[in-house]
Each structure stands twice: as structure tokens, then as C-alpha cells.
Design a protein around this nucleic acid. Structure first.
Length: 407
DNA sequence: ATGTAC
């Protein structure tokens, strides 16, 4: 479907790909559209909902400046999916055992005082981390800014420990069946403690650099770093590093899960086809409308014609493997998932454990009060989201989860 | 989303 609405109140227009835009999201989009360094227009995806500074589900192209709070704190958060050489019947018959095996194999939940995860074995903390990073093509040298600043350097300890760990909240691991009863492994996680620290650090740095001009902004979380400054260069290198860390984190988990599946089934489990991996909290330099632009995608994925992407629904809904349509009106982007319709607190107040059991019927997963904030009814209907972005992506596969592991 | 302080 086409653009539902164009907001014209700002310096540049906002193209809105949904007919259900809540008041605070609208205000945040209007705020961003007033900034002097936005290139051409802002795009709001069908899963748009209010975030910190900028809305989640937006594409913000800029020239000469970037907004650290628009990228957010989970830099490089995203999805990874692979099709597996495994029988559907095996997954159906062993769903519960596989759920527990994955929970055992992948550390998940929270850390405390830099300590171990709440749950999951801590079996793959690399003895020589640098060689692991080299394996995944990460820069062996940390960005200078990480070394120069004691706070970031201290938290790097957690960064090392967090490689290969799931995290909490909406991060998850799923085993799914597609429309042809092919088995897929799909997971959602980001750059964990270290990426969070980098994001928080530069959000504060941007505020400091703005000085007295901060008061002139519609929202202090729209503080920006100006291209050409040392802070800008440091931020760009740290974001690139954190995105690499996030992707490596997802790759570590995928390998640990494949190993545990092989253990459970008594036979190696091969990947069929390519590994699909996409960030949905990112900032990258790209060419659009024949110009070089910084594209910030906050809860949005890149969807050029050559891009494969993953659009997950909630823990009771379907997910989609997609191919981009290269639509210039969204700077080649699409929605990153279903998008929340209510806060975690409101979901916990409004729904019961019985509601969660009913809404996740047929899915082998935790159904206790601790994951009530992830109940499907707290998210938009993913079918509506996909219909509203038919101009942005083509659906290649439709996945339904049988096993879901939550952090 | 995360770590930490309250």
C-alpha cells in the first residue's frame, strides 16, 4: 500500500506508512522534521511507536550531523535467520526438549555487577577473544575512543563476557516452520552491555557539545554531533564497531545453537542456503538521490533490491523473510517487526498468565508472569504491518514458530 | 535494553 499520510508541519515532510499514528509518535516525527540537517524527508514505518527522542520505526537521513539518541542504545540490534537441514516432524516431536537445550546452551537474562547471566551455561567465553574477533572480521584494535575513556574501557570487560549472549526484553531465539514445512532458526539480539554503554556515552556527549543551544531543540534527545568534529568521528567508528559486535554476537549464538541441536538429535544439522542477518538499529553512510547521506534506521531495516531481511512478529505471531523493493521514498527501508502498541507496564497490568497461555497456544515457550510484557496483544498485528509495507518489501517466506526462547 | 543505585 502507498503512503497513508504526509506531515507537512516541519522543514521537511514526513512520509507515514500507517493509518494508526499515535499522538506522541506524531509529535516526535514532527520534532525531527524541524531539524536543519535532515535530508529530503523523514519516513515512518508501519510499526512506528514512540521511543526516546526519535520514534522506533523511523528512517532519518541526515547530512553534516547525526543524532546519537536516534540510533539508540542497542546499536546494531537486529535479526539473524538460517534455514536448517532438519525434519519438521523432529522439531514437532521434540519441541520441549529443544527449548530446554537452547536455554541451557545460550546464556540469557540479566547480568549483575558484571557477573554471569541469570540462566544458561557459560561455556563459550573465548580464552583468546582477539582471535575470535578476527574470525568474524571485527577490527582487532578497539577504537581509540574506547581506550581513551576509562568508563568505556571498564565496561569492555562486560562486552567480552557478553559475546554470544541473548539479553532480555524482546530478544529471543525461535525454531520455526515455513510455508513448505522447512525448519528455520531465527534469533534477535544486539550489542549488549558494550553497545549500550557506547550509545549512552555519545548521547550525553552530544548534549554537552550542544551547550546552550540544547534549549532551542524541541527535545534534548535530538542533540546532534556535527560532522568534522572529533566527537563525530569517534561516534562513527564506535557505531561501526558495535554493529560488528552485535552481528558477531548473533553468529556466536547461532553456532552454539547448531551445536546443541546436533547433540540433541545425534546428527549434525547443516545450514541450507545463506545466513540472513540484518541490523534494525543502525547508522550507515549511503548514496540516495545521487548524494552521500547518513541514514539512521531506528527500528527499521535496509531494504534495497539486493537485501534480504527478517521481519519478526510477536511470540505468538508469524515472521517474514523478505526481499527489499529498493523504494526511494523510504530510502530503501522497511519495518523491523510488529511494533509495540502498549508499554511493558501496561501489558503487565492488563493481561494475565491465562491470557498469555491462550495467545501463545501451540508455541513451546515460557508462559510465566515474567514474560507477560511480551504477550502478543502488546504488539501490532504483523499481518497489517506487512500489508502496509507491500511497496517496501516482497515476502519470500512466512515462518511460524514452534519453539520460542525468551531472555 | 542494560547496569547500577536505591
Amino acid at each position: 500500500m502507498p503512503i497513508y499520510e504526509i506531515i507537512h508541519t516541519g522543514r521537511v515532510p514526513v512520509y507515514v506508512y500507517t493509518d494508526t499514528l499515535d499522538h506522541s509518535s506524531r509529535q516526535q516525527l514532527m520534532n525531527v522534521a524541524t531539524l536543519p540537517f535532515i535530508f529530503k524527508h523523514v519516513a515512518a514505518m508501519p510499526d512506528v511507536h514512540a521511543g526516546r527522542g526519535a520514534v522506533i520505526g523511523s528512517v532519518i537521513p541526515t547530512q553534516g550531523a547525526v543524532i546519537p539518541a536516534a540510533v539508540g542504545v542497542d546499536i546494531g540490534c537486529g535479526m539473524q535467520a538460517v534455514k536448517l537441514d532438519m525434519k519438521a516432524t523432529v522439531l514437532e516431536q521434540q519441541a520441549e526438549a529443544l527449548q530446554h537445550a537452547i536455554e541451557e546452551a545460550v546464556p540469557h537474562g540479566r547480568t549483575h555487577q558484571g557477573g554471569a547471566m541469570d540462566r544458561g551455561a557459560w561455556q563459550r567465553v573465548p580464552p583468546a577473544l582477539q582471535s575470535y574477533w578476527a574470525t568474524f572480521g571485527l577490527p582487532q584494535q578497539l577504537p581509540d575512543v574506547l581506550k581513551r575513556h576509562p568508563k568505556l574501557l571498564h565496561d569492555r570487560v562486560n562486552g567480552e563476557r557478553h559475546l554470544g549472549t541473548l539479553g532480555t526484553g524482546n530478544h529471543f531465539i525461535e525454531l520455526c516452520l515455513d510455508e513448505n514445512r522447512q525448519v528455520w532458526l531465527m534469533l534477535h539480539s544486539g550489542s549488549r552491555g558494550i553497545g549500550n554503554r557506547i550509545g549512552t556515552y555519545f548521547i550525553e556527549w552530544a548534549r554537552q557539545e550542544m551547550g546552550s543551544r540544547l534549549k532551542q531543540l524541541p527535545d534534548p534527545d535530538l542533540a546532534s554531533l556535527q560532522e568534522g568534529t572529533a566527537a563525530f568521528a569517534d561516534y562513527v567508528s564506535c557505531v561501526a564497531w558495535a554493529q560488528g559486535f552485535a552481528k558477531a554476537n548473533r553468529t556466536f549464538m547461532r553456532q552454539a545453537i547448531l551445536a546443541t541441536l546436533a547433540d540433541c538429535l545425534g546428527t549434525p544439522v547443516a545450514i541450507v542456503g545463506e545466513v540472513i542477518d540484518c541490523h534494525h538499529n543502525t547508522m550507515e553512510r549511503e548514496q540516495h538521490f545521487k548524494q552521500s547521506v547518513w541514514v539512521t534506521r531506528k527500528g527499521a531495516i535496509r531494504a534495497r533490491k539486493t537485501d534480504l531481511g527478517i521481519v519478526p512478529g510477536s511470540m505468538g505471531a508469524k515472521s517474514y523473510i523478505v526481499r527489499g523493493r529498493g523504494n526511494p521514498q523510504t530510502f530503501c527501508s522497511s519495518a523491523h517487526g510488529a511494533g509495540r502498541v502498549m508499554s511493558r507496564g501496561e501489558a503487565k497490568r492488563r493481561f494475565s498468565k491465562a491470557d498469555l497461555e491462550q495467545q501463545t497456544a501451540g508455541v513451546t515457550c515460557r508462559k510465566d508472569a515474567a514474560v507477560l510484557d511480551e504477550i502478543p496483544a502488546a504488539y501490532k498485528d504483523i499481518h497489517t504491518v506487512m500489508a502496509q509495507q507491500a511497496d517496501l518489501v516482497e515476502i519470500l517466506h512466512t515462518l511460524k514458530q514452534l519453539v520460542c526462547v525468551k531472555g
